[in-house]
């Protein structure tokens, strides 16, 4: 049984076809990367898995559970760390963490313990009584990852988790994510950092204009979609995922690094 199985997912917003029939299978225990330029459909796909977007067609199964037929059971298995810092604006972060545990069925005592452990693990314990505006950008990102781990999910979905964090913290987070993956947790990661995908992901899918254009291990993707005698574009490292990305999408990663975070009102 796959951790996540996506079949024929289509989604349009007015005249924009965000997803044009996506098929994807993510195995249990896998560290899976989803790469794509801005507007490719990564966040829409992740939102569809979490039930925040209703697809026009297709089905999504989470550990064999249809996420529309059995949404509660499916949601219990997953946690999302979104791009946006979507926590209650004026709540102290300790409360945010404790409430998160409660949403997933942990009693108050366990939620308190887990919150303390995770806040300490991510170096946020000293800031436990302040709200998100009193945290630096890096601390906010750490809070998002810590919150997503409150429910001890079998499947962790990370949408650009290291966007905007400094190099040192990024490498720290990589080590942490590798460890929790090695402990058996399935991780689905979207990223704009090629190096991140190369370092962490066992398999990578490249999504472009609402379609999966390639899906395999980074090494095989490089062999299949690498330079192949094409002239090397300036600033693109040959023999890397970046080259694969450029060849498949026609865009450089820097072009793909713009993303919007406007609230949906």
């Amino acid at each position: 049984m796959n951790a996540i199985e996506i079949s024929g997912i289509k989604k349009s917003f007015q005249n924009v076809h965000a997803l044009k029939g996506v098929d994807l299978a993510i195995r249990q225990g896998e560290f899976f990367g989803l790469l794509g330029p801005n507007g490719a459909g990564k966040t829409t796909l992740i939102s569809a898995i979490m039930g925040l977007v209703r697809p026009d067609a297709g089905a999504i199964q989470v550990m064999g559970l249809d996420n529309r037929q059995e949404p509660m059971a499916a949601k219990k298995l997953m946690a999302l760390c979104p791009q946006e810092i979507n926590v209650h604006t004026y709540f102290p972060i300790q409360k945010i963490m404790e409430f998160q545990g409660g949403f997933y069925g942990f009693d108050r005592k366990t939620s308190k313990q887990r919150a303390e452990e995770l806040l300490k693990r991510f170096g946020l314990w000293e800031k436990r009584k302040v709200g998100k505006f009193n945290l630096s950008g890096g601390m906010q990102r750490r809070l998002m990852i810590a919150r997503s781990l409150m429910s001890d999910p079998k499947i962790l979905i990370l949408d650009e988790p290291t966007a905007g964090v400094d190099v040192e913290l990024r490498h720290e987070l990589w080590d942490f994510l590798k460890t929790i993956n090695q402990n058996g947790r399935t991780i689905l990661l979207t990223t704009h950092y090629i190096e991140e995908a190369e370092q962490l992901c066992g398999r990578v899918a490249i999504i472009h204009e609402g379609k999966i254009v390639a899906c395999d291990t980074p090494q095989k993707l490089i062999v299949q979609h690498g330079q192949k005698g094409k002239p090397v574009r300036r600033f693109v490292r040959p023999g890397t995922l970046e080259e694969v990305f450029v060849n498949l999408t026609g865009k450089r990663m820097e072009e793909a690094q713009q993303w919007e975070m406007a609230p949906r009102l």
């Binding site: 039930g51 946006e84 926590v87 604006t89 949403f103």
Partner: peptide
């Protein structure tokens, strides 16, 4: 409205809550 504005509603909608 505040939950929609700061998008914390998405976190509640993604959680197993009816």
């Amino acid at each position: 409205y505040m939950s929609r504005f700061d998008q914390s509603i998405d976190n509640m909608l993604a959680a197993p809550l009816r």
